[in-house]
Amino acid sequence: MNGAKIGAIVEKEIADARKNRMIILSMALIPTLLVAMVLGTTFVMLNVESVDEASLDEDELSMIPAELSGLNPSHALLILLNDQFMFYFLLIPMMLPVYIAAYSIIGEKETKSLEPLLATPVSTSELLVAKSLAATIPAVVLTWLSFIVLIIGGYLIMPEPVFLAMIRPVWIVSMVLLSPLLALLSVFSGVIISSRMNDPRAAQQVTGIFVVPIIALSLVVLAGKIFLSVWMVFLAATIALAVDCVVLYFAVKLFQRETILTRWT
């Protein structure tokens, strides 16, 4: 592996993506909307009439997990809702890289620029690593940046228990550990799907299936059926790592010079 060559390709990919208005808009929109949604919802909920235990019926009380039982019910409900939103934050590293990955491969198919690239003394593994990094790094950085913005906003407007719940280890570990793994899953899937499709939007839609398990888990949490713990995040990270390895195996199998030249173009 030659770091200089990988760096040159990453640099080119990022320069190219920065000049693609579609990618810039797509990548900026999702994190901005999500941060605005979390902070906006919190602001609105804190400014409506306060909820106490007496105003909640039995079903609503049963939604509050035992871990939050000592808290003001308004705060407990807000924590549950924010937990739901935090799951959406984990979708950011899954949704963003596929915009770059799909365009970086399908775009090269369209402009027929893959062949000159493959004719250089760069190995296919260097090329795959560079393409993956070029898609993963901006997505993870944007996820982390938007999380930092959320923390700053939350510090300013959230009551202390709600703010502390948002920066509890579960979410810090999720952001640090799980989000890069999910980003890689999205990128490797993007490579596989891009090899079979000629439309970046179609590739993005198909990659969307990976969002389903995370949405499902978020609904279970919202229903108060489980309260996330750090070991659950580690378990999820282990599963994500295993799935990453399987998907990477197929991506490497497909990402061969001859296959790319004779079947992709």
């Binding site: 080119k12 027929k112 062949e115 000159p116």
Partner: peptide, 17 residues
């Protein structure tokens, strides 16, 4: 590949760069 230069049938340039 180090010792050859290749002009492919389509120029295959990065048009935004």
């Amino acid at each position: 590949r180090r010792s050859v230069g290749i002009l492919t049938e389509a120029p295959g340039l990065y048009e935004r760069l």
